[in-house]
Every structure is written in C-alpha cells, then in structure tokens.
Design a protein around this nucleic acid. Sequence first.
DNA 1: CGCTGAGTTGAAGTATTTCAAAAGCTGTGG
DNA 2: CCACAGCTTTTGAAATACTTCAACTCAGCG
Lengths: 250, 250
Amino acid sequence: MNTLSWKGNSVHGGIRSVPPAVGARLKQDLRSAFGDRLQHFESGRQILLEGEKSGLVFYVTEGWLALSKSLQNGQTQIIDFAIPGDIVDPASADGTTSAITVEALTAGAALVMPSEKWERSVQGNSDLHKTLHKSDAAREARRAERMLRLGKGTAEMRVAYALIEFCIRLGSGRDTDQPTFHIPIVQQQLGDFVGLSSVHVCRTMRRMTRNNILEITDHMDIKILDPQGLAEIAGVDLESLRAEILPKVV
Amino acid sequence: MNTLSWKGNSVHGGIRSVPPAVGARLKQDLRSAFGDRLQHFESGRQILLEGEKSGLVFYVTEGWLALSKSLQNGQTQIIDFAIPGDIVDPASADGTTSAITVEALTAGAALVMPSEKWERSVQGNSDLHKTLHKSDAAREARRAERMLRLGKGTAEMRVAYALIEFCIRLGSGRDTDQPTFHIPIVQQQLGDFVGLSSVHVCRTMRRMTRNNILEITDHMDIKILDPQGLAEIAGVDLESLRAEILPKVV
DNA sequence: CGCTGAGTTGAAGTATTTCAAAAGCTGTGG
DNA sequence: CCACAGCTTTTGAAATACTTCAACTCAGCG
C-alpha cells in the first residue's frame, strides 16, 4: 500500500496553522459561490485517485490535502499541498478525468461543487473571477519555483525552499523574526514533495538544525532560527517571494 | 551570457511543426478577443524577464517560446514551452510582476493584450472562458507529469516523456505509427527542460537511437521508431496521456 | 580554410540513493 | 506500569546516477 497518510496527525498539539492564505471578503464570496455542500474528511482518506472520473471542484475550509502523482513502480511525487482557503480543481484537459490523487493529510473539510456549476459561478461574478485568477497565478508561481529547484537545485536548496514556502503560505512570522509553524507531514512525504529520499531529507534537515538555522520538535513543529540564512540557502529573497506566491488580501 | 537561443533555428528545413494544439473555432474566438495587436519577434529575443513588471498576456500565433526561471548561479530551468495556439500569462500573484523569463526560440509572432483587458474579455465570453479553462487544465496536467518525473524519474524516463509530450502537443503521428517532428532546441535546452546536464541528455538520447527507439537527424528532427517502447520508458499510456494533456478540439 | 557552436565520448568526481541497523516515541494490552 | 508493536527518525556504509572536465569530431558559414 502506497498511502500518503501518517497516523498521528489528526489534531496536533503545539503550534497551529494560521488560517487562510486568502482574504476575508473573498472567503465570503467563495463560500457563497460554493453553496454549502460541506464534506468532512478524516486524516488519511483518499478523496480522489489519479485517472478517476470526477468533475468536482473543492474549496478547502479546514485541514491539509496532498495532491500527488505516482509512477508505476510506486514512487510518489507530491505536486502540491492544499490548505484552508485553497481551491482544488483536479481535472485534466478532458474536463472530468483527474490528473492527480487527492489525499487528506489531516482531518478537515471542503466545500464541494460540480465543476460546471463552479465555472458558471466564476463566469457570473467578476470579483470572484479576479480572485480566482490571482490565486491561480500564485499557485503557478510557487510550482514554477519548485520546478526550478527540482531540476537544478541541491538537496539543501530544495528543502530550504519548501520550508520557506510553507512558512509564507501559512502566514507565519509576520510579527516575529523567528517564524514558527507546524506541517502535518513526515520526512518521507517531505521527500516526495522535494524529490529526495526520506533518508536524505533527514540528513539535510539535521545539518540545518546543527547549524542553528532550524529547530524541529515534536513532529515537524518548525522554528526558523535564522530566516535570512535559510533564504540564502533556498536562493530566494523573502519579500519578493512573498509577493510572488501569496495572493494579496483584498 | 546565459541566453537560451541557438543560432540556426529561425526557419528550419525538413520537418515542420503542425499548427495549433487548440481548435479552429476557438482560434477565431481568441483572435477576436485579443484584437490584432500582433507583435513579431526574432529568434533569441528576450521578450520578458523574471521579476520584470509587465501586465501583458500573449497569444502565440507562430513560433516557439521558452518560459524559464534561473538560479543565482546561472542555472536555468525551462518551465514550459509555448507553441502556436498557447496563451502565456506570465503574471505572478501580485498581478503584474512576471514569474518567468520569456524568450523566443524561433522567429514568430504573438497577439499581445493588457491582462486587465484580457480578463474582461474572458469574463464576458462564456465560450472563451470554457476554452481557457480547458487549456489551463491541460497546461497544469502536463506540468504535473513533468514534475513527477523531475522528482522521481530516471534520466531515460524524463527524456522519453519530454519527447512524447512534444509529439502529442505538436499533433504529430496521428496518421502514421512512426511519428516525426522537429523541436527548435539544442540538447543543452532539452537538459534545462528535463533537469539534466547536456552531456547526460546526449548519452541518454544516443542510447535510445542505438536501441532503435529513435532516429535523430539534422538538428532535432526526431522520428520515433518505436512509440510503444518509448512510452514504456516514459511510463505513460499514449492514449490516456493524449486525453490528459491535449485540450479537446471543440 | 579556419572559425564557431553542437554533439559525442571517456575518465574522474560528487550528490544522492539504497540497504541495513539501531534508537526514539506513542499507543495498546496485559 | 511495563512490555511490546508499529512507525518515524537517525546514522553508517556501499552502490549508483548524474555531473563536471576535457578532448575530439562534425557541420555550417564567413
């Protein structure tokens, strides 16, 4: 069995994820556009399989989803994570077949809607349309940043970038200079995200903790001790990256 | 200088690319939506730089574009290619800063439009909106396939997949069982696309030609001698992949 | 004819994987 | 409360895939 789930990640103590990456008014727009077909899911639940017919669109209100694809040999690549505020439209070019597997990493919930109805809503609501466009752009931008590092970056750079991306998307550390957040995944899954074996993820992160760049406790409770150092390893400028991958709150 | 261009690729003899990946009626829709601000470009021209402000959207009518990103050390990753019929919206989450560098690989032309006007057109035209949605889904799907292989695939698999993707997008070989097409890039650029050094791209492709899977002549005139074999190396099913990454012609 | 850029090949170096084993945590049942 | 099972993390050692460096060939072009 090649599931992405991990047992102890339902409600995790310590650091909690800060809410949506999208603005509050938008959130209202989206909620009303979606109606209120709220689907709850428990941790580890496979919501959709690569290649499966579906025709549904999801608006995540709570919890984390992993969007992944696998090779025949079972190797899995996590294409992206969806967190509260994100829209997941798994359709491929034919409009109904899912291009990806969607799995819940934590318990949570999502508003669900047939993609046709969703498209009509977007078409009919100019604000919603603009919002969606920005959130699409943000998603593309962060995936492009990751592709760059997947193709040309070292292990250190990939892990550092991934952590910074999490930090920015979760909205952590705008107040403090040592951001702190939790990600509900194990090293194996982080490896599936950045294209490394879990062993190498471990070594890479240990090196960073030994160099006082990170502090990792419990299970992936992360404190970035040296954001500037981490950004250098990742090869990013924190402020520009934030503008690039974080949809502006309207 | 770290340009993507290659000298001899303006108008290439031999095999020619078959036109758009998108339907004919759609093409009309798009052309009229865009108006007729047609911009020509010569091979090698940098059309847009990563991080630059722009706020423009492009509809490619002729020629190839490379969309890329670079690390500080100069290493470049090609995120995608744009071919006739493709829409390029380089904006990142802030709406105006370009997330990518856009460079012309051949001479060609594109219809250009301010993104705001473009958004309004889409908003006001339901057919166009649907079309765009499918073409977005196709783009996402093919990038996800590539990310999977970038993260978890071998060199052989990455190269094989890239070639199959080109073949499908160019619409080659629907009639014959040994598809034939030309790609206007050198091995270095193919390496920047699949995350390998040019040397390793060379070795990998030579192995494939020696095994009678491919035949490569001139400069990247490619004939797939054994599509089934190539598909196995790439780890794809040709028909499903076509449905996944090729927007259906309406 | 000599130059330039692309492709090819070999040899050495390196980053990362794989294999294997042990240590740490968490929850469970006796 | 302890022992045990199951999973994650950690570490070492060997194997491997890919890169880098360097040299050479080849084709097109002034």
